[in-house]
């Protein structure tokens, strides 16, 4: 029994003390997931891990399914866990769908889709 308990603690310590890189999971965003905002001219996604901008993307569609023109996705210079895409023009009132794909710095892939609304 004592050996088993020691093994448990040793494994937990090793795991807890190791620098972790993981699947980049979406923590929060601006505009917020499912939320309503007065205006927006960019989508800002905050992940649980740093992401590689070259292999990560954000697409934006309006309520009719048409692509919204925007620039290339880039990470925040001060935080590589934040992926940003700026639209070419402020968004008109309506519902929008964001689809993102992220590749974390350790090359794990994640993806997701959510909606937000710009109120009239």
């Amino acid at each position: 029994m004592s050996k088993f308990v020691k093994l448990i603690f040793a494994a937990a310590l090793v795991a807890a003390s190791t620098a972790a890189f993981a699947h980049a999971q979406l923590q929060d965003s601006v505009p917020p997931v499912g939320g309503t905002v007065a205006s927006a001219s960019q989508v800002r996604l905050h992940f649980s891990e740093g992401v590689e901008p070259s292999f990560s993307s954000i697409s934006l569609k309006d309520s009719g399914g048409a692509d919204v023109a925007h620039g290339k996705a880039a990470v925040d210079p001060s935080d590589n866990a934040v992926l940003i895409v700026k639209t070419n023009a402020p968004l008109a009132p309506g519902a929008y769908t964001v689809s993102w794909k992220a590749v974390s710095v350790d090359t794990h892939h994640t993806q997701g889709t959510f909606q937000f609304t710009v109120k009239p």
């Binding site: 999971q25 979406l26 929060d28 965003s29 917020p32 997931v33 499912g34 997701g112 959510f114």
Partner: peptide, 10 residues
């Protein structure tokens, strides 16, 4: 709820 937070509502 992680899925809810990332895909439905914050």
């Amino acid at each position: 709820l992680p899925y809810y937070n990332a895909n439905v509502a914050a």
